[in-house]
């Protein structure tokens, strides 16, 4: 081989390694900054006391409760709707049919819609049109719309991946479609349900732009789902942008948010594996 081409190869290799190194360095820079500046105030009191002095001091208690409620509302609306839609798309529409194609297209487009547009829509539809106002319910339902496509996609692919023999076997035993779904296909698709839920929760917890105009800014402890509640991500935004001297608490809250993301993902996975795993074992 000519020396020029081996020189070119070496340059190519060098470029790729440098670029990868740069990306890794940025990632660890971000991670190190978060850990260094966030860990200082992070303790049990921080998690269990309400914010004071516009959030410069004090903790996160009501914000954690609001965040949990918003995500809970989002998932309780999105999960049944998502499972049912996935069942319809994978079991009751001919693959490649026109209806299924249009539905899939609409879901793909929904998945790509920017979060601020969901915020505009949620503010106009849930808060004003349905009269729910700035509330945890409005925020949760807006997030449900956002998380729905990814939930449907993962469950649908789980349902589609079950072997044809199971359906043939069920038909041979003269089982109804409902029985086949409930006792065979859904338990088998449990891991995909877990993945879908964890992805959906991840998307919901990380969201800010869709919540500012739907669930609002109020940082008191919510007393019902019709109260406005400040989500953790909105809290970080507010501390950073509107409260001078709020950076320290913002970093600690960011660390909590990331820990929450990781924990929610693992928990969802563990739970539905356990629940459905038992049913598969029994069946």
């Amino acid at each position: 081989m000519l020396p020029t081409s081996s020189l070119r190869d070496a340059l190519y290799r060098f470029g790729i390694c440098i670029a990868a190194l740069l990306v890794a360095a940025i990632f660890f820079w971000l991670l190190a900054d978060l850990a260094r500046q966030g860990v200082g105030r992070l303790d049990w009191t921080f998690l269990t006391t309400p914010p004071r002095n516009a959030g410069r001091d004090g903790g996160l208690a009501p914000i954690l409760v609001s965040t949990f409620l918003i995500v809970f509302v989002a998932m309780s609306v999105a999960a049944p709707l998502g499972v049912a839609t996935a069942i319809f798309l994978s079991e009751f529409t001919p693959a490649g049919g026109r209806l299924a194609r249009w539905m899939s297209l609409s879901l793909d487009v929904l998945a790509g819609t920017p979060s601020i547009v969901f915020g505009l829509f949620g503010g106009a539809f849930f808060c004003v049109f349905l009269g729910l106002g700035f509330s945890i319910l409005s925020g949760g339902m807006t997030l449900a719309c956002m998380a729905l496509p990814i939930l449907i996609r993962t469950i649908e692919s789980g349902l589609r991946s079950s072997p044809i023999e199971w359906r043939l076997g069920a038909a041979a035993l003269d089982l109804s479609r409902a029985t086949l779904l409930w006792h065979v296909l859904l338990p088998a698709a449990a891991p995909s349900l877990a993945t879908g839920l964890s992805l959906g929760i991840g998307r919901a917890v990380a969201e800010t732009a869709a919540l500012i105009f739907t669930s609002g800014y109020v940082d008191r402890m919510p007393s019902s789902l019709f109260d406005s509640g400040r989500a953790l991500s909105v809290h970080i935004y507010d501390l950073t942008m509107n409260v001078s001297g709020g950076d320290a608490n913002a970093y600690s809250s960011a660390l909590v948010l990331i820990a929450f993301l990781i924990a929610a993902n693992s928990l969802a996975f563990w739970f539905s594996n356990r629940i459905f795993g038992r049913r598969v074992a029994r069946a």
Binding site: I87, E91, W102
Partner: peptide, 25 residues
């Protein structure tokens, strides 16, 4: 079952239409 899941599927696919409708309105 079919009626229920078909309704849900229509609902989910209508969300995007609803969003564009409200933006337009």
């Amino acid at each position: 079952l079919v009626a229920a899941v078909a309704t849900a599927a229509l609902g989910s696919s209508a969300i995007f239409v609803l969003i564009v409708g409200f933006l337009l309105k």
